[in-house]
């Protein structure tokens, strides 16, 4: 190793740490800003008919019924399905794009709501 190589490596490592730190801080900040909102399912109804969230937020669907649900979310080219959501089991999904999303239960067709991502 030449005599000038060590400082260059140290400098490169410092830059890498600096960039990584900034990225990590940004990521943590983004995570902190992106919230999780909760929607309950009780008496075969969603707790709200319409929910407005910010881009990047997640929505957690709780099941306080004594029967399973099957949440389906469609909109903006995005689809999500909870599978069979047993009583007490939560289902959480992020909303990454702005727009209107339709949420329904495959088993209980009158359970319908809308998530609006702004």
């Amino acid at each position: 190793m030449s005599r000038g190589a060590a400082p260059r490596i140290a400098e490169a490592l410092l830059k890498a740490y600096a960039v990584g730190g900034v990225v990590a801080v940004l990521a943590l900040a983004t995570a902190a800003w992106a919230g999780t909102l909760t929607v309950d399912q009780r008496n075969l109804k969603f707790s709200v008919k319409e929910l407005r969230v910010a881009k990047g937020d997640s929505v957690e669907f709780l099941n306080h019924d004594d029967t399973s649900h099957n949440i389906t979310i469609t909109g903006q080219g995005f689809t999500a399905n909870s599978g069979l959501q047993a009583p007490g089991q939560p289902f959480k999904t992020p909303f990454a794009k702005t727009g209107v999303y339709k949420v329904s239960c495959g088993i209980h067709p009158n359970m319908r709501m809308t998530v609006i991502v702004e």
């Binding site: 399905n81 069979l84 495959g106 209980h108 067709p109």
Partner: peptide, 11 residues
């Protein structure tokens, strides 16, 4: 279930 056409299910 009837109103929506007998098609609902858990897949």
């Amino acid at each position: 279930f009837k109103l929506f056409g007998y098609v609902s299910g858990d897949g």
